[in-house]
Design a binder for these strands. Structure first.
Lengths: 215, 215
DNA sequence: ACAGTTATTCAACATTGTGTTGCATAATCA
DNA sequence: TGATTATGCAACACAATGTTGAATAACTGT
């Protein structure tokens, strides 16, 4: 019946929790770069020297502090992920819309953590998540032709970067489209590009069970 | 016969030139983030207080200092730009290959200035250059159908982000493909995606004079 | 509940970088 | 050459980092 985590001194858990909360609050308020250790300590209501008993520096706290938060957030962002790699066009649009809706609800959080100027570590983390999902969906095990004209890695990067860029632009837009509208547009674009990609990479054409478009 | 620029005191020109050089050297040596004003002053062999007579801070020097350098570099990176928006597939591949060769020659410079962790300002500058070029090539004036299924802005972002992501991955790869190889692969991918995009956006199909592929 | 352990606090300190100032010196300009 | 102006130099206030030692508080197991 032991807890999954090693029993830590409650004081330690408390302090670290306070710091995590302080970090998230401050990042949303004034961005990551401008935060000082003193800011964190003040907000967390702990002594500045206590900070150094737990973390080496800001980045150290960032990694472990956002890890948990991130792990809660990312799974909600499935990006086309469903049980099986084969996905219908309808299903893709539905999942895409739901993902965008999720991002839209946490708009401030995503805008700040992903934005160009801010936190490369988190930005990279998000991108790698995208990459992982896309690698899974366009898995090399599925490749039919022995020598694809374009290596899969290139396609993975292409797709993840494009998707990421569109999301980021959407997050920073003055008058962003609504999630359903963007989902529809992005879905159309995505589906239409698939055919070419499936040909070029030697992936099976049935990977996307394209259905008749709705008039 | 006056010079284009206002005649500046040679001492000023000298000092600023030294600082620009120092910045570029130090960025290549230890990355942008870690550079201090003292580093710059020492390397430029000027007094630290002199720095503040010319620039407000590091970023200020970065912008004006790299502007010139950047202006020399970017035009060599035409990314499909040619005289007219209509471009043949052959020509596209040739230009793409030349661009990649250019990037490859300045590999260190591009890797450092564009990399995730480094200098958001330059990264953004490069991306905006891509965006500008792509906007020019897929100009709204060319749109035929009055209501494109996918707005052009979305497509611009999609393409620029994808291209940028691939370049960046190529720059940071352990064993990067040669410029001609990547140009061929990226060109194939690009050309194959064009058809779908041209349809979806209502751009004229003749925009890319697709030629028979070479066996 | 008690004694031992340990996290936190607090004050102090050295260090580093920032940004500014006043004055002497040297380079430039007309 | 004389006036102008950029630079060098030294000093300063300030803010943030990272460390230390001793006192205090909180938690632990028995």
């Amino acid at each position: 019946m032991a807890d999954r985590k090693t029993h830590l001194d409650p004081r330690i858990r408390r302090t670290r929790a306070y710091l995590r909360e302080a970090l998230i609050e401050l990042v949303l308020e004034k961005g990551y770069q401008g935060i000082t250790i003193k800011d964190l300590a003040d907000r967390a209501c702990i002594n500045r020297s206590t900070f150094y008993l737990h973390y080496q520096d800001k980045d150290d706290l960032l990694i472990t502090g956002f890890e948990e938060y991130w792990d809660q957030v990312l799974p909600s962002c499935q990006l086309f992920i469903y049980n099986k790699p084969i996905l219908s066009a309808d299903r893709l649009l539905a999942v895409l819309e739901r993902d965008l809706q999720h991002i839209d609800q946490l708009r401030d959080f995503y805008r700040i953590t992903l934005s160009e100027e801010e936190i490369p570590l988190l930005r990279k983390g998000f991108f790698n998540h995208l990459l992982k999902v896309i690698r899974y969906r366009f898995s090399p095990q599925l490749v039919l032709s022995s020598i694809p004209a374009v290596p899969l890695q290139l396609v993975h990067n292409w797709l993840a970067s494009a998707y990421f860029g569109v999301i980021l632009d959407w997050l920073t837009a003055d008058q962003p489209a609504s999630p359903p509208v963007l989902a529809s547009q992005l879905g159309k674009l995505f589906l239409q590009q698939m055919e070419g990609i499936l040909q070029t990479t030697g992936l099976p054409q049935e990977l996307w069970a394209r259905q008749e478009q709705i008039a």
